[in-house]
């Protein structure tokens, strides 16, 4: 009786027809295999291959772009450095040129100054000589003229002297003047 009941109990809990959560259904297993394999194959075709390819493509694209940007940056930096160097060089050259021209201008200035000084000195000297010469000439001319005038005056005086009346008159007029004074 007990054994019978125990067997019944075991049979009952084991063969529960309404189903427990641990029941295994071969139909479901079969369908799961079929469904999963189908999903795997179809997704491999329509999804994983194109999507993973796209992802890789995009990753490579980004990597390439970054690399390109990096090289471009480096080039730009190099160019800037080169530019700086050339600007420095040009500035230096400009300074040099300015310095040279200043030096040259100074030289030229002093040269011109010297030249003009000597020239003016010479001109002054020439002029002095000329003046002296002219002076001497004029003096000699004046001397001649004075001598002529003196001779003429002497001649006139001599001629006047021959007239007595006139002489007396002259003397009188002189005397008059003297007395007036």
């Amino acid at each position: 009786m007990i054994l019978n009941n125990l067997l019944l109990l075991a049979f009952y809990s084991g063969g529960e027809s309404s189903g427990g959560p641990l029941d295994v259904n071969p139909g479901v297993i079969l369908w799961t295999v079929v469904t999963f394999i189908f999903l795997l194959l179809i997704l491999k075709r329509i999804a994983w291959k194109p999507i993973l390819n796209s992802l890789n493509e995009r990753e490579n694209f980004i990597k390439d772009s970054l690399d390109k940007a990096e090289t471009a940056k480096k080039e730009a930096e190099k160019l800037i450095a080169d530019n700086k160097v050339s600007i420095l060089k040009a500035e230096e050259e400009a300074h040099k040129i300015i310095e040279q021209s200043r030096e040259y201008a100074g030289k030229l200035k002093s040269q011109i100054l010297d030249e003009s000084k000597t020239q003016s000195k010479k001109m002054i000297e020439d002029a002095t000589h000329e003046i002296e010469r002219k002076n001497a000439e004029a003096f000699s001319k004046l001397k001649d003229q004075v001598a002529d005038i003196a001779v003429q005056a002497a001649e006139k005086i001599l001629r006047e002297n021959l007239d007595k009346d006139k002489q007396i008159k002259l003397v009188n007029s002189y005397l008059k003047d003297l007395s007036k004074n």
Binding site: N25, P26, G27, V28, L30, W31, T32, T35
Partner: peptide
């Protein structure tokens, strides 16, 4: 001989 009735869970897998 196997019961391959699509059950509720099979339908939800689909």
């Amino acid at each position: 001989g196997i019961d391959v009735t699509p059950t509720k869970h099979v339908v939800f897998m689909w």
